[in-house]
Amino acid sequence: MRRAGISAGALFAVVLVLAAVGASFAYLDMPLGALFSGSAVDEAVSFVKRFFPPDLSPDFLAKVGFATLETLAISLLSTLLAALAGALLALPAAGRHGVAGRVGARFILNLLRSVPELVWATLMVLAAGLGPFAGTLALALHTTGVLGRLFAEALENTPPAPAEALVGGGAPALASFFYGTLPLVASQWLAYGLYRWEMNIRMAAILGFVGAGGLGALLYYSLSLFHEAQASTVILAMLAMAIAVDGASAWLRRAAA
């Protein structure tokens, strides 16, 4: 019989969480008091002040503009490559080519997905050298894993009847896919692709920190040289780009619906 009120197990769990939080503070040696002291607030204000006003000189703006274009290109190209590769891997991963294909494709997708973008970027910078090419490869590899998995799940939830009817009428497998299956998943695949594109834009802006080009590289240089005004211009550019891309993908989604 279940009783009303908190069970002993729930009480134990709460105590355990509280103890873990306390232990974490002790272990990390975080002086909570110092965070809210007068001198800390002064220091924070002066730190923020150094970022204003942003550096809006034409020379630097041109630099930021090119870096923004580079970041956009990296995110767009990597998402497109990932969508293509993800679609190719999603077909076997959804079990359309037997059990062996399913297991193999899922393994590849898991491998690609479980390595984070920054780790891929570090590896690609070593393999392909500094620059936007490494960033594009890194994002494409990780996004292939994510999109392939999402595409496969969409395929698994799709009624097979339309494609089966076409195969029953003698249509080749590829034609049946394009006429019977793709129209059922296309809008969902597009939505997943756009969502990952938005995420990749933000990611592409950071990848520069490990030498993979774009706005991130610019931000890294200006912060390393304590040029806070320039860093703030770069951060503003990142913000503007994220807002623009959100708007663009919302518009694309509406147009496709």
């Binding site: 009847a161 339309p162 089966e164 009817a165 076409l166 029953g168 009428g169 006429y179 019977g180 129209p183 059922l184 296309a186 809008s187």
Partner: peptide
């Protein structure tokens, strides 16, 4: 074969 429930993707 004409199927009983038309096997046609809705968005086609």
């Amino acid at each position: 074969l004409v199927h009983q429930s038309p096997p046609i993707p809705p968005r086609q």
